[in-house]
Design a protein around this nucleic acid. Structure first.
Length: 339
DNA sequence: AATTCAATCAACCGCTGGATT
DNA sequence: AAATCCAGCGGTTGATTGAAT
């Protein structure tokens, strides 16, 4: 049996709210509260609106202390960090941004923040590629036979083996090591350049449960991620609803990976430069599988993406060699693998 | 000045899960 | 245990606005 409609669609007004409707709803709720029953509320007030519509209007617009627009850099960082960690759980993210609604954050992410990040990533990508091509051509003139139109577009990917990747493929992250590697990858921040990890505007004040982490430079990586993890824990402790979700290092990797996968797909699929003729991508499969990568060439495309995901980790470690074909992320993971 | 295009955001829609009957 | 109800959530749509042509 199908579900009964929440209201009589024929007698319900849709579309933008008038100031009179707003005033009615606001006045009633401020005086009487919602009464825990949104469906019945519009009838009580004499509004020809669906209860769901009233709820949305109140929560997203009429509720006191709502902020609209003007997101700060700090808020950007929080949104990005949380998105990477928990995915598009806007209501949870909203709990960490007082005055912001899930709808507002969702809109902001979809219309601006995502583009801001993609733009940043592209710029870095182009600069690195141009620099690499210049150096290589100087070193060994004639090694590259690159069609004119490809110069500056994909100078070295053409040398790489094509590996197809399925957008919805879930990484195989069953074992501890794979999970750990992925968590390390997820440890970065997303604000403007120049800000060091320690100065992340999110207040990561909780100690890390390092029981599964290793000594050495990766402890810092783990700490960075665990900082986010701790944020997750604090979110849980503030009463947000996160059923069946574990954000600890040993916990539900699929939840943690949701945001990562979303962003990865967005980055890859929104960048036509990473497409070869057959619609395959270079080297992404290794990333999705949590591989450490085996050659510098294979790691290059991930590096372009990962520079966005954990730039601060990279910049923080002397063990990592910078360069377009020596991706720091994989260098780091290789180091981890050899411990 | 008119038209087209892109960006933004409020609101809607349908699904999910918990509570209740 | 099954059916039903409802709040809450995330994805999507469509109206509006502003910039570009």
């Amino acid at each position: 049996m199908g579900r009964a409609p929440c209201c009589d669609k024929a007698n319900v007004k849709k579309g933008p709210w008038s100031p009179e409707e707003d005033a009615k709803l606001k006045a009633y709720i401020e005086k009487n509260g919602t009464g825990g029953n949104w469906i019945a509320l519009p009838q009580k007030i004499g509004l020809k609106r669906c209860g769901k519509s009233c709820r949305l209007r109140w929560l997203n617009y009429l509720r006191p202390n709502i902020k609209h627009g003007g997101f700060s850099e700090e808020e950007d960082n929080i949104i990005c960090s949380l998105y990477i960690n928990i995915g598009s759980r806007w209501s949870v993210i909203a709990t960490q941004l007082p005055g912001r609604t899930d709808n507002d954050i969702k809109n902001y992410w979809n219309t601006r923040l995502k583009k801001k990040l993609l733009g940043k990533q592209r710029k870095e990508q182009q600069a690195r590629r141009a620099n690499y091509l210049k150096q290589e051509m100087k070193r060994e003139p004639g090694i590259f036979v690159v069609p004119d139109q490809a110069v500056g577009r994909n100078p070295y990917w053409a040398e790489l083996p094509a590996v197809s990747v399925h957008p919805n493929q879930d990484p195989d992250i069953k074992d501890q090591a794979s999970i750990k590697k992925l968590l390390i990858k997820l440890g970065g921040r997303f604000g403007d350049d120049g800000q060091q990890p320690g100065s992340n505007s999110i207040n990561f004040q909780y100690p890390l449960d390092i029981s599964t982490a290793q000594d050495g430079p990766y402890e810092t990586s783990m700490n960075m991620f665990a900082s986010s993890t701790s944020t997750m824990n604090s979110i849980n402790s503030t009463g947000s609803q996160l059923p069946n979700t574990h954000y600890d290092v040993n916990g539900s990797a699929s939840n943690v990976l949701q945001g990562y996968n979303n962003l990865l797909n967005e980055l890859v699929y929104s960048n036509p430069q990473q497409l070869d003729g057959s619609g395959s991508f270079y080297g992404i499969e290794d990333i999705a599988n949590g591989s450490t990568g085996t050659s510098s060439a294979e790691s290059s495309s991930w590096g372009d993406i990962s520079s966005l995901v954990y730039p601060s980790i990279i910049s923080n470690y002397g063990v990592c060699q910078q360069g377009p074909l020596q991706d720091s992320g994989f260098e780091e993971l290789r180091y981890l693998g050899s411990q």
